[in-house]
Design a protein around this nucleic acid. Sequence first.
DNA 1: CTGAAAGCGCTTACAG
DNA 2: CTGAAAGCGCTTACAG
Lengths: 334, 334
Amino acid sequence: MPADTPPTSKDVAAAAGVSQSTVSMVLSGKWPGRVSARTAQKVRDTAERLGYRPNPAARNLRLGRTRTIMLVVPTITAPFFASVYIGAARVAAEHGFSLVVFTWPLELDMPFDGPQEAIDGMLASSMAEASLSGMRRPVPLVMLDSDPDGGAPTVNFDIEGAMEDLTGHLFSLGHRRIGHLAADIDVWTFQCRAAALEARVPDVVTERAAISITDGFEAAMRLLSRADRPTALICDDDTLAVGAHKAARALGLDVPGDVAITGFDDVVLAEALEITTVRLPAERLGAQAMLGLLDLLNGRTPPRPVLPAELVIRRSTSPSAALTTGSGPVGQPG
Amino acid sequence: MPADTPPTSKDVAAAAGVSQSTVSMVLSGKWPGRVSARTAQKVRDTAERLGYRPNPAARNLRLGRTRTIMLVVPTITAPFFASVYIGAARVAAEHGFSLVVFTWPLELDMPFDGPQEAIDGMLASSMAEASLSGMRRPVPLVMLDSDPDGGAPTVNFDIEGAMEDLTGHLFSLGHRRIGHLAADIDVWTFQCRAAALEARVPDVVTERAAISITDGFEAAMRLLSRADRPTALICDDDTLAVGAHKAARALGLDVPGDVAITGFDDVVLAEALEITTVRLPAERLGAQAMLGLLDLLNGRTPPRPVLPAELVIRRSTSPSAALTTGSGPVGQPG
DNA sequence: CTGAAAGCGCTTACAG
DNA sequence: CTGAAAGCGCTTACAG
């Protein structure tokens, strides 16, 4: 065996004095009943001694599968998607799969023409299923935080229920003029927030912003400069809520005295600024989606879970600072 | 060609009426001078029509390389490492490589026994080179934000220079009693901060904390409860700085009036809370490291760049609120 | 209980 | 200018 090239199963076979097929049988764990225990032990020892690792490319070629799953997310820099990754990667690892991330629309600004690596399945979060074109063939797919009517199995949050809780909370504090600081992205998850909110607050006033602190700031400035200034801002995302928070301060408005502010996600930023938010369990989302994909790969029909989203009440909607002009019941336990 | 299996180069060859080798030549772009332009066009059209994509496993096996790089980071949920990934992935894509992330120590709590996928090279950030054991063979490696004396080429930040700027800034505001809120992780990047700080402030008082808001809060409480309370806290990381900020508020101390606070990284949290920090260009770090790895793969010796780290002065050390007891020059332009 | 052989889908000398 | 053939390192029928 040459020293500068990794050992192959052939090398192990030669060193152990057995055939290549025996090595393969033993190391894949399918040997009992077909190879003697003594031979098996000898093979394992030899493999260990030589530092043998099966060549993944050869195995993939032979088996026609890779035990690799691709996770497609709009961006990995957002903590939300990083958590989705963690959840999915954990479940994948528990089942001997590995997970690669593909960010798209990539900050690189390149078209998604399908994975260049060989994958057995795909998870895609918070995007339109139709945008995943260019696959060389249909790949088992689970969509996360996406339109449940898209064809692929989905894992979603109970946005309806969360919006019910959120508006109920604000109503109980006496809020009646509510503004919606909406994400300026045309995907299902945000359409869903808007629909659920408008169903409960028909006269909601809406401003749109790209998901960044500065854009959130400017859109919130517009909302808070209106003659009929909203007393509460429901933001589609914690980042927007931070921008709104800044805007309120810039206008000399007290939070929550003059204006209440809420977000979505519950990223660390919301915790740091004590912003009331709807906690979306991103890690669970990733884990559930991977479980569903494993179902799919095993020929089973995955469930389409809808994960509960918890309202986390913090200082930015503190009951103690509730509007005194409100007519609803005030101070119900959070 | 069966309908439910992806087309192979054999299928393309048959459909185009040429040999498999001609297909390969044409699609790899090595055909000029060896295949007629007309044949080449025919092959390309046929491949397009059939939706042919080369099988990566077969190509990898044949070529013995994968054009895949693995990035090893302690965690992907920290925005810093997400940015490192973005920078490295961009350069990788520009050179036809793909980048897979491996988080380690994984939240999964599993040992790093080398990548299960086949990789051509590795980037590892903010960890000890020695901890990367278990590789089946030496893999081309570039270390990021790590000990430059570890053997592998490195890409680092100018922590020394940053600490010079930072302490200079605090001195100029009149600060003399300085506390160090240090990350409780024994890796080079934090040892480096401590050494650089102690060289400039020999009587610095240090408390350690795990990198989280709550742990930072508690360690800061200890620092700020001392009889000789520091007038400035240098935190190893923005997250710790946020904890320190909370602690100051909890103790009724004004920031920066009673205590100045600084961080490292310049994540969005620092911007939102207006915390003075040392901006570490994470994306550039990732990009430079990937360029170095490409050098390595091409047999060249990569440079070992040291990236400048910029002091970003914000409200948490605002000159206008500088200590009035200070003896140094106050209010130098930021 | 063990081995010889086929074949996964590529790329690249080699032959013509 | 084009094709037939070898071989990358596996796994799995198949034969004994």
